[in-house]
Write a protein that binds this DNA or RNA. Structure first.
Lengths: 240, 240
DNA sequence: CCAAAAGTGTTAACCCTACACCCATGT
DNA sequence: ACATGGGTGTAGGGTTAACACTTTTGG
């Protein structure tokens, strides 16, 4: 880490001084999960001003000794006790006025986690999952960040099987299909969908809950090895 | 713009003081162009330390009153006198050690410009186009940024007809095809390529240089209106 | 018993791929 | 005349899209 910045004694209000104009860097996370029914985003209720008591994306200041990725993972853990299966950076938001306190440039991520109930961690008094189509008003420009994240997730799905990071180890074909439909925003034919998934050959063979032949779906699991192999080959025709 | 930072008198070495740990923000541009033969990237030779005389991506510090996008466009103009047809943010590089002077977080962009010879602008003594497969060593982590930009350009081509921003108003089918091949990294069949382009219906009807029936290619131009229309419909099957 | 969910196959249209020959020009 | 580059069409294979009925279970 470089040291051309200068620190006053601890506790001083303006503790950090520099030669060039600077900005505080935050990492914010749009954390998606899927409960089998809705695509969800985790929000925390802000404990301090500005936007006190407003819902916001979890996130916080990046420390001098960490990358934005490290900062994002740390904040994620601190605020929500979650660890992401997958994280991807999306475009930074840098409007000079976006934070009323000072210039804050945020590097947002979308993060995918397997669904679990949450309670807030350190910084955040309250944390709650919201279906993506029932989002409350958000602090700062977090609404824009959220919208960008939804788009990024959609784009990402063309190249990566990100759905599997949102599903539990074992899942059913209808669950998988609903998830695709939620992310991409349109419906598929059940038979065609299952056929496509089978020809991709990234699912392990189904398990039938013993005896029950219908009305209860078979469970599949994702075959990561086959996927990596496929990706190396360059044969990633993952379009729907 | 927020004002919680504090300025010493002008010319002071540590002119900017803040409450939170900060970073300087730079915007760097990977500027692509196409001369009909190679996919090119514009590099500038650095005038100052660190990495003096090294080749580097054009870019510089983002000012307090501008967004990173505005900063990128300004630097682009100042250093290279170019304006981009298209710009897209790629992932930020934030390794704390990436700049030996102090923490500098860079927001890189790839920019597409129509080809023209260049001479350096204000900051940069020298500017030169390099074919993407003949890049020299670069300052800082600019090599990694360049590689990321190449990938981002490739991905972008699945969703946007970015090739048209690299080509002159009038271009030939073989030119277009070469460009696709350079970006995506593999060859296409001449006939299939032309057919696909025609079925996409985003090209205006060809112009034959009067009289000459062969050996000189017809020129096409991009029909932006049709593209926008198509995009609205959601029928953007732009895969190769 | 009725509604809701899961399973299953076939056909037609479309798209992608592979492939060969001719013509015009510049050297 | 020969090498280079541009133009053109067709046939086969694969993928996608559209489509309906049966079974089971929970209410």
């Amino acid at each position: 880490m470089a040291h051309s910045f200068y620190k006053f004694r601890k506790g001083e209000v303006y503790a950090h001084c520099y030669k060039h104009p600077q900005a505080a860097i935050t990492a914010d996370c749009v954390i998606f999960s899927y409960d089998g029914k809705d695509l969800l985003v985790l929000l925390v209720r802000r404990g301090q001003e500005p936007f006190k008591d407003c819902w916001a994306l979890p996130g916080g200041f990046v420390r001098p000794e960490e990358t934005v990725e490290e900062g994002a993972r740390r904040e994620l853990l601190e605020e929500t006790s979650l660890t992401a299966e997958y994280m991807e950076q999306i475009r930074v938001f840098s409007n000079p006025d976006r934070d009323p306190r000072q210039r804050v440039v945020t590097v947002p991520f979308f993060a995918l986690v397997k669904h679990s109930p949450v309670t807030g961690g350190d910084d955040a008094a309250e944390a709650k999952w919201f279906p993506v189509d029932q989002m409350p008003d958000l602090a700062f420009d977090h609404k824009d960040i959220f919208l960008e994240a939804k788009e990024a997730l959609k784009r990402s799905l063309y190249f990566n099987p990100v759905t599997f990071d949102l599903l539990p180890e074992k899942f059913t074909m209808p669950q998988l299909q609903r998830l695709y439909e939620l992310i991409l925003g349109h419906k598929f034919d059940r038979r065609n969908f299952a056929r496509k998934m089978n020809t991709l050959e990234i699912l392990d063979s189904p398990e039938r809950p013993s005896g029950t032949p219908s009305r209860i779906a078979s469970t599949f699991s994702f075959n990561r090895d086959k996927w990596y192999y496929m990706k190396k080959d360059g044969s990633t025709n993952f379009e729907f």
